[in-house]
Design a protein around this nucleic acid. Structure first.
Lengths: 138, 138
DNA sequence: GCCGCAAGCGTAATAACATAACATATCGTT
DNA sequence: AACGATATGTTATGTTATTACGCTTGCGGC
């Protein structure tokens, strides 16, 4: 039976390498961070990473964090949703928390309907401090 | 009496130039776009623009659009709020609409409280097509 | 089989976005 | 006048992302 951490089997070699790197990482990685970690596997050029990332993001296996110019593996392997996902990014430890909220999504949809705006993609990123880091700082 | 289009008088020359450029522009501008428009006024280096932008963003007179690596003048000159602002960005014409939504803000706050996350800053950017462009395309 | 197409890959070069480091200048306060 | 804080100008550099080009691989139709 399939469970939430299955990795799709139809990824290309580069896509697999990139997704593996993201999954193994504690926090978000830039494309160049990923490249550096994969030099040993034969990757040499940024484009090899960017191309893999494009596909992974398309398929919902990874997300791009716009405010960081960085990427994370999708935390919820069975979700792969196209809907709105919000990210909470800790400025201390870099940890990223991911959540979906139907209320916000609906609210947004209603704003869009009112103005005749057709929503194609939404990014929502919250910067701050996670509970762990607040505790440590106290 | 003050009204919504007053420009603060305590801006430095560079800040004034940059804000003026943003205000005059139809859509978002990158720092380098701004620089190019201000060469005639004596600006020469990216840093001159970035420094001005930092201050303007701090004061709420301009906003940074993370998903575009670009900047816009604040649409609502008397708002200058620190709270959550959402941006709707038209992929066709580049127009940016700015709105604040308390429901979303509260919903987000409640999610954060639950997880013990301390929110410092939130960016929300909606990509899609504006009503005008949808009409033209039809 | 083999043709043709679509998707993927590799490489080099370059474009676009952003900051570090350092020196100088301007202004309000004591 | 001396000081600190803030702003400025300049050069160099660092970081992120794309363009352009050509080769390879997998796959369906003939």
């Amino acid at each position: 039976m399939a469970h939430s951490h299955d990795i799709p089997t139809d990824l290309t070699r580069n896509q697999e390498l990139v997704l593996g790197t993201l999954t193994a990482s504690m926090g978000p990685l830039s494309a160049y961070d990923i490249l550096d970690k994969l030099r040993g596997d034969g990757l040499r050029a940024p484009l090899q990473v960017y191309r893999a990332l494009d596909k992974l993001v398309d398929r919902g296996l990874a997300h791009r964090l716009e405010s960081l110019n960085a990427f994370v593996a999708c935390a919820d392997m069975h979700c792969h949703r196209k809907g709105l996902i919000a990210f909470a990014i800790c400025e201390s430890c870099g940890k990223v928390d991911e959540f979906a909220d139907e209320v916000i999504e609906e609210r947004l949809g209603s704003w869009a309907r009112t103005g005749g705006f057709k929503v194609e993609r939404t990014t929502m990123e919250i910067r701050g401090r996670c509970a762990d880091c607040l505790k440590k700082a106290a």
